[in-house]
Amino acid sequence: MTKQVHIIPVGFDYERLFQPISQGKLEADQVYLLHSSREESDEEARRLAENMLGKLEETFDTVLGIDVESRTVEGIFDFEDLYPYAYDMIEKQVEQGNEVWVNISSMPRTVAFAFAIAANSLLVEHNDYRNQIHTYYVSPKDYLVTEMIEQLRKEEKFLNKHQDRSDKFEERYNEVSDIISQIDSSGVTQGAKEMNDGLHIEFPTVPSSDLHDFEKTLLHFLDEIESAESISSLAKKLADKSEQNIDQDSFKSKVQYNINQLVEKGFVKIQEQKNRHQPTLDTVGELWVNTHPEQNPDKINN
């Protein structure tokens, strides 16, 4: 029997993660709540996230009577790990005959984008999944942060009038005034956090499904050896591994052609090193290899 399965990454939101099911048109038989360990977050962020998770567990289980399971997601800014995790989780549900609904309204965008791109990748690769995988977003009715800022401005005016009453009033006025000043100059966030050895994460495009067997062999072999000194070296290593009687010149040409095709499709990149063209997996290639086990690894003459 087909189940309606919802995968819901949890951040600092509550109502918009369950109301589409409790009050909207969506049905749910199973809900997976994904949450971060947030070991590096400050105490208030951890408290709020844990509170939202607890409330959602109770709402889905006790109030709505839906089977709910919570899972911890590590490395919420490591897209290279998040994407295979999302891909595998969605694919397993679909293979069981279930219909999957992915709510990308909450949690860090790295998690939401990983699940959205993984869902799209599966749809591109498997046209028959189109009625089984859905990605949806729920817009908040109100943004409480704007109301909080409004209240802070009122508090600042009040404290300004009474700061001469005591040092505590003056100290509190300075604290509130400083926060408002930071909001006015930086918005509701401040600075860019370092992650993955940089200040940004690039989200790759959805991998193409148009790969034939030899291209797949090349991708898995490049993953195995990490990189090759040249395309000629790649061809020789792959031929040696096969232990088959192969014409080296024609095989080199075949590898050259298919590597060029993989470069055009975005799976492989070529690094120029001392007049040599060194092929290596691009991000999309790495993601593809991590989500597609190698089939018939010794067969290369396809």
Rank of each mutant, 00 (worst) to 15 (best):
R38I: 10
F113M: 14
E69I: 13
F113I: 14
D184Q: 03
F251T: 10
I231G: 02
A49R: 05
Y87Q: 14
D167L: 13
I133C: 09
Y83F: 06
V10I: 01
L26T: 01
Q190H: 07
D61E: 05
D282H: 09
Q248H: 02
Q182S: 08
I270E: 09
K254Y: 07
R276S: 13
S209R: 04
I183H: 13
W101T: 01
P207S: 15
S106I: 13
A45L: 00
I149C: 10
E40R: 07
L82R: 07
T189Y: 00
E147Y: 08
E39H: 11
V63H: 02
E286I: 12
I246A: 04
V263R: 11
V10Q: 03
E264F: 03
S22C: 08
M148Y: 15
G54I: 07
R172V: 06
Q163G: 10
Q295A: 13
E294I: 02
K299Y: 14
S233T: 04
N174Q: 07
S209Y: 10
H35Q: 10
I76M: 09
Y14C: 02
V268N: 05
A49P: 08
A239D: 10
V124F: 02
I90E: 00
E74K: 10
K265M: 09
M195G: 15
I259P: 09
E175Y: 02
V188W: 01
L123V: 13
D88R: 13
V284A: 05
E155P: 04
N131V: 12
L122T: 11
P9Q: 02
R276F: 09
R46G: 11
S36W: 09
M1Y: 14
Q295I: 12
E175P: 04
H6I: 03
N174L: 11
M89K: 00
E243T: 15
Y14F: 01
N245M: 12
N103C: 00
I8H: 04
F267H: 13
